[in-house]
Design a protein around this nucleic acid. Structure first.
Lengths: 213, 213
DNA sequence: TAGATTGTTAATCGATTAACAATC
DNA sequence: TAGATTGTTAATCGATTAACAATC
């Protein structure tokens, strides 16, 4: 289990490897060299070999990598070996969209409940999942062994939700509210700040020449 | 106009500065030092000064930075000086959620239309915006001077949509489909690969100790 | 003026790329 | 065996941090 200190840069590339290896498998490609993978994924061959060797020697000299094996190894590294129970907090547009994203389930993320403060939403069913009252969040998490929560509230409500989740011993938070949460360091958190990404786009739109016809 | 070669690392931090400066303004804080900003934003004071000095000397020795000025300067750097016309392609759950995200409008991103192949969706109105047939996408973009498109289709449809957008002289693409698009390099692109972020979370959930009670 | 804090250069740290011996 | 390609060490490149003179 070699994970002394993997850099964030490497970790952030792992899902992309996983995605491209799946594509190769779907195309019945069973063997690939770092050079050829480099051509399609866009990282240098050297970087690919360095990245993979953080976790073990998956390749074979003179041959390359077995696509299926490597795909499964990376899946294991990413923790796709057991299901995680999840909840969505905030049943607005984004919360509903994520609830309907069935592909999360394919990766083992099992949506157990959706929570909202709005009494008009409580009792509804979204994508085969019940919407519950926010008051019941803590008890539900403990009872159903929920490990991961998606926060889809607005900016104002996010920290309070986070506090309740921590109180209920959540392990990870996927935060879609445009605010940085204050959390104990043992909580795993990943932020999706859409506005930040949009502003990055805006920066480059401004930079690039307008005309090109 | 000092933008010789700003590194991606710096650019990706700009939206966060913008966000925190807005918070400070809302709290009636009008002056801040790099040291104090460091405390709240989490970058080192040195990094803050380095970052800002890529774009000009916005501070004053012995005083610090004027929050309002800095906020507006960063807004300008991010290109928030003129509105951008946008379209959403794909009126599924995510497309609808983004259409309802009114805060994009506050930053100057004006949603002009939503496009879908599904004839049952065409003609609907989502968040005050009409849903049009995909066939009309190219003509619409040219007619309405649309510069930015959000791709919210599935993986399979995304490249075809991208090709049409490029053909219609789009300038930027915000891609939510879980695939890397093949685009001419003058097109500005920002990917939101939710699955990748979720797998990163999964990686750390696996790494961190399970117990903590 | 004295104190504070910037702008900027130099030092350090970390990540990427190149090179090549090992070996399938 | 000869050719290909990995695993790994060394070299390079870039980003972050530290230090401090300039100056408000």
């Amino acid at each position: 289990m070699p994970d002394n200190k993997i850099s964030m840069a490497v970790i952030k590339r792992l899902p992309k490897y996983h995605r491209y290896l799946k594509d190769l498998l779907d195309k019945d490609v069973h063997r690939i060299s770092s050079k050829e993978l480099s051509r399609i994924i866009g990282f240098t061959a050297s970087q690919i070999r360095q990245d993979l060797n953080n976790f073990g020697g998956f390749g074979q000299q003179g041959y390359g990598y077995n696509v299926e094996d490597l795909y499964h190894e990376i899946g294991k590294i990413l923790g796709l070996t057991k299901p995680y129970n999840t909840v969505i907090v905030g049943a607005g547009n984004l919360g509903q969209a994520l609830a309907n994203y069935t592909s999360f389930g394919d990766y083992g993320f099992k949506l157990q409940g959706i929570f909202d403060i709005n009494p008009r939403l409580v009792g509804m069913r979204i994508s085969n999942t019940d919407v519950y009252d926010m008051e019941d969040l803590g008890a539900f998490i403990k009872e159903k062994n929920v490990e991961l929560a998606f926060i889809c509230t607005n900016k104002e409500g996010a920290q309070d939700v986070a506090d309740r989740l921590v109180e209920a011993d959540i392990r990870g938070i996927w935060n879609f509210a445009p605010v940085d949460l204050n959390l104990p360091e043992e909580i795993v958190v990943e932020n999706v700040h859409l506005i930040d990404d949009l502003l990055t786009l805006s920066y480059f739109l401004k930079e690039k020449p307008e005309t090109e016809a």
